[in-house]
Amino acid sequence: MNVGVFLSAVDLGEQYTVPAREFGKLLGDGGHTLVWGGSETGLMKVVADSVQAAGGRLVGVSVTFLQDKARADADEMVVAADLAQRKAELLRRSDAIVVMVGGMGTLDEATEILELKKHRLHGKPVVLLNSAGFYDGLELQLRRMDAEGFLPLPLSELVYFASDGADALAYLGEQL
């Protein structure tokens, strides 16, 4: 399975690096391919290192202005012209999407992927991996949107909230 992962390229504490490392190992152990932003920094590096160490493939999708931070030993590296093209390429190359912890860029990617799915422009499973309760607030907001009629399809069809990497992969295994 080609798993697209959106996450931070920032160095963060163990409450985020440990789950990222564990998820990467699970991906690699399962023989899956990581499709990610291609960066050799932060959580992106942590996940890629774990996937690679466990025997999985790495497909990076960098962007021109970040190309100097791209991982040199990825199995494949694509360089997109801009962030919009990068998001589209990540989605195109992925069978499923997992959103891990991240900042504004990750939030932008997550909301675009969910908006596209809401309009049925893709039907790929989407998981929010809620490490250390990072997405508790977003989950609360999305549940409110669902309850108050802002979503044209049930939230359960839009996104799955996973407590850890094993939960995320088990859900994806059921969906694909």
Rank of each mutant, 00 (worst) to 15 (best):
M1G: 04
N2P: 10
N2C: 01
N2A: 09
V3F: 01
G4A: 01
L7I: 09
A9H: 12
A9W: 08
D11V: 13
L12M: 15
G13L: 11
E14V: 15
Y16A: 06
T17C: 09
P19S: 14
R21W: 07
L26F: 05
G28K: 00
G28L: 03
G30V: 01
G30P: 04
H32L: 02
T33I: 01
L34D: 07
V35C: 05
G37R: 04
G37M: 05
G38T: 06
G38Q: 00
S39H: 07
E40P: 01
G42K: 06
V46M: 08
V47R: 02
V47H: 11
S50F: 10
V51A: 02
Q52E: 15
A53R: 11
G55A: 11
R57A: 11
R57N: 12
L58A: 04
V59F: 12
G60S: 07
V61A: 11
S62Q: 11
V63P: 09
F65K: 10
R71P: 09
D75K: 08
E76Y: 13
V78M: 12
V79W: 10
A80M: 01
A80P: 00
A80F: 02
L83F: 11
K87W: 14
A88E: 14
E89V: 12
E89R: 13
S94Y: 04
S94W: 10
D95S: 01
D95H: 03
I97W: 02
I97N: 08
V99L: 08
V99T: 08
V99R: 04
V101W: 05
G103Y: 08
M104H: 05
G105K: 03
T106K: 06
E109F: 05
A110P: 01
T111M: 15
I113R: 00
L114T: 09
K118M: 14
K118S: 09
H119I: 06
R120Q: 14
L121R: 12
H122E: 10
V127M: 05
V127N: 04
S131F: 07
F134E: 01
Y135K: 05
E139I: 13
E139D: 06
Q141T: 15
L142Y: 06
R143T: 10
R144D: 15
M145F: 14
M145S: 15
D146Q: 09
A147E: 12
E148H: 14
F150E: 09
F150V: 09
L151S: 04
P152R: 15
P152K: 09
L153R: 11
L155D: 05
L155V: 08
L155T: 06
E157D: 14
L158F: 06
L158S: 02
Y160G: 03
Y160I: 02
A162I: 12
A162D: 07
S163Y: 13
D164F: 07
G165V: 03
D167L: 08
D167I: 06
A168P: 04
A170N: 13
A170C: 13
